[in-house]
């Protein structure tokens, strides 16, 4: 082991030169890239957190929308029930009114017909009784026995007719 002072100087110089070269050409770039990666990771984590928040908010929104839709559906069903029952009532009333009208009409018609028939019968009976009376009067003029016979005969005729 010999001390050679130039070796000390050389090693110092070599180390300093190596340090400067590495610092300039290698390490600064490497540190830059590592710093960039750190920033990238931070950014991605931030983004992930943000995305998660958004997702939670979105789910909440969807839940609300679903709730709303359900409520609306319920409302529509209730409304339709009300309207349908209303309609049914109205239809029933209409039908009842129609039936009443028809019944009334029929009753009026029947009454009319009856009146007419009574009228017709009355006039027929009148003429028939007039004719009977006239026949009776004709026979009475001829013979007594025959008069009775005739009255009977015509009365029979009337009974058979009516």
């Amino acid at each position: 082991m010999t001390i050679v002072w130039t070796n000390i100087v050389f090693s110092m110089a070599a180390f300093i030169i190596l340090y400067l070269l590495l610092n300039k050409f290698a390490f600064s770039k490497l540190f830059g890239v590592m710093e960039k990666r750190r920033e990238l990771v931070m950014q991605q984590m931030d983004e992930a957190a943000k995305t998660r928040e958004q997702a939670v908010a979105y789910v909440e929104e969807q839940k609300q929308a679903l709730q709303q839709a359900r409520q609306e559906a319920q409302q529509i069903i209730q409304q339709s029930q009300v309207t349908s029952s209303n309609q049914a009532d109205r239809l029933m009333e209409q039908a009842k009114a129609e039936a009443d009208r028809l019944k009334n009409e029929a009753v009026r018609d029947i009454a009319n017909e009856k009146n007419k028939a009574v009228e017709a019968l009355r006039s027929e009976l009148g003429t028939a009784s007039v004719r009977i009376a006239s026949k009776l009067l004709e026979k009475e003029v001829k013979t007594d026995g025959e008069q009775e016979q005739l009255v009977d005969q015509y009365l029979k005729e009337v009974g058979g007719r009516s």
């Binding site: 070599a14 030169i17 590495l22 990238l40």
Partner: peptide
Amino acid sequence: CVIVFVLAMLAVRNLSVE
């Protein structure tokens, strides 16, 4: 020095973040 320097330069030759 040359070995260290070459090693370092090879390491930083194609620097990539991802």
